[in-house]
Structure formats: structure tokens, C-alpha cells
């Protein structure tokens, strides 16, 4: 029983860590977006406010996949173990 619970907890933690690999994508994407925005501001300093607001919008949308990964990881750490352990306990009839 203890071994089974240990495996559940460990696998949940591993799963959360693996899910956060998705953080690479938004990081690269947002970095590129900001780099291009900086270039644009350098070329046209008068369009700064418009470029900035567009960039923030774009960054927010690029961030979505990272946020999905984060939500999955948080659920795996704080919510999933309880549910799985309860399922195991009811399956074993304890």
C-alpha cells in the first residue's frame, strides 16, 4: 500500500516536471516577439505605444500553451494525488 502511494506521488511529480517542458516554446516565442518589437521601436520611435500594446497582446497569446502546461502541472501536484490515492483506497476496499 505504501509502495503504491509512493509510486503515485512520484509519478505525479514526474508528470508535472515533464509537463513544464512546454515552457520552452512560449519562452522562445515571446523572446522573438520582444526582439522584433525592440527593432521596430528602434526604427520608428514614434510608433512606440502602438508597438508595445500589440507586442503585449501577442505575448499573451503566445503564452497560452505555457499556461496550459502550468495548469496541468499544478493540477498534477495539488489535485491529482488525492484523487488517485482515494481511487486506490476504494479499489482495495480500505
Amino acid at each position: 500500500m505504501e509502495l503504491a502511494i509512493g509510486i503515485i506521488l512520484g509519478c505525479c511529480a514526474l508528470g508535472a516536471g515533464i509537463a513544464m517542458i512546454a515552457g520552452i516554446g512560449p519562452g522562445i516565442g515571446e523572446g522573438q516577439a520582444v526582439a522584433k518589437a525592440c527593432e521596430a521601436i528602434g526604427r520608428q520611435p514614434e510608433a512606440k505605444s502602438e508597438v508595445t500594446s500589440t507586442m503585449i497582446m501577442g505575448c499573451a497569446i503566445a503564452e497560452t500553451t505555457g499556461i496550459y502546461a502550468l495548469v496541468v502541472a499544478i493540477l498534477l501536484i495539488f489535485v491529482a494525488p488525492n484523487i488517485f490515492v482515494n481511487v486506490l483506497k476504494t479499489a482495495l476496499g480500505k
Binding site: 499573451a60 499556461i67 502550468l70 499544478i74
Partner: peptide, 16 residues
């Protein structure tokens, strides 16, 4: 779904 997850995920990650 994506709209709500974006808002919720950002605030939740901050508080966590």
C-alpha cells in the same frame, strides 16, 4: 476555454 485558462493560470501561478 483558452480565454479563461489564460486569465486563471496567470493569477493562480502568481499566488502559488
Amino acid at each position: 476555454i483558452s480565454m479563461s485558462f489564460r486569465h486563471y493560470g496567470n493569477i493562480l501561478s502568481g499566488s502559488v
